[in-house]
């Protein structure tokens, strides 16, 4: 008998409003998301498409557990490790790719020992070559995206949320996530989902 894959991440009637100060005693209020409900199971890959400003990135922040919805619920086990990849964020430009990978791996939950062990794997997966030991400020947008993606893959997070990161990678590298997930590699069995957001 086939076992149903477990639900790893779910949204229940999620609504998010925010208020931003626009001047002295002036506030701007906006409802970014309303009535969002869905369920994602282990092994599923989901893409979200929408025009600019429709709330895709906000939804990812909610799913990553960075912020809380105004109403409704995001259901995710406490032990589930979630990582959000956003283009150009999270790297220290003065540090090398290797140092940034070490910090990212530790921030994503790895111990220092485990993070050090994964550095070689991140180097190979990112295809950065000699640039791996150069400061990230010398990287192109695509190289930064590769470093972020390789770090998330090699630290084996449970939920990988990608906010347009791969839109700047080259053609070969864009195929890597699919290969990693669908060819039955050990990584794909551990992963639960892969959420990609794009405005195209």
């Amino acid at each position: 008998m086939n076992q149903q894959p477990e639900t790893i991440l779910a949204a229940q009637d999620v609504r998010l409003c925010y208020r931003r100060r626009s001047g002295f005693l002036k506030w701007f209020e906006h409802t970014a998301l309303a009535s969002i409900s869905f369920e994602l199971k282990r092994g599923e890959i989901l893409g979200i498409l929408g025009r600019n400003g429709c709330g895709k990135s906000t939804l990812l922040r909610l799913l990553a557990g960075l912020i809380e919805p105004t109403s409704g619920k995001i259901i995710c086990d406490m032990q589930t490790r979630r990582a959000l990849l956003t283009l150009g964020l999270g790297f220290r430009p003065d540090l090398s790719g290797r140092d940034n990978a070490l910090l990212s791996a530790m921030l994503q939950g790895a111990t220092k020992g485990k993070a050090l062990e994964t550095l070689q794997g991140i180097h190979e997966f990112s295809e950065l070559g000699a640039f791996y030991d150069q400061p990230v400020k010398t990287y192109s947008a695509g190289m930064r995206a590769r470093l972020g993606f390789a770090t998330a893959i090699k630290t084996e997070v449970d939920v990988l949320l990608i906010d347009e990161v791969l839109s700047v990678g080259d053609v070969n590298f864009k195929k890597k996530p699919k290969r990693r997930c669908w060819r039955g590699s050990p990584v794909s069995r551990q992963w639960c989902l892969f959420l990609i957001v794009s405005n195209r």
């Binding site: 959000l84 150009g88 964020l89 921030l107």
Partner: peptide, 9 residues
């Protein structure tokens, strides 16, 4: 801010 945008810590 950049890191806060990515990981809940």
């Amino acid at each position: 801010k950049g890191l806060i945008h990515q990981i809940d810590m």
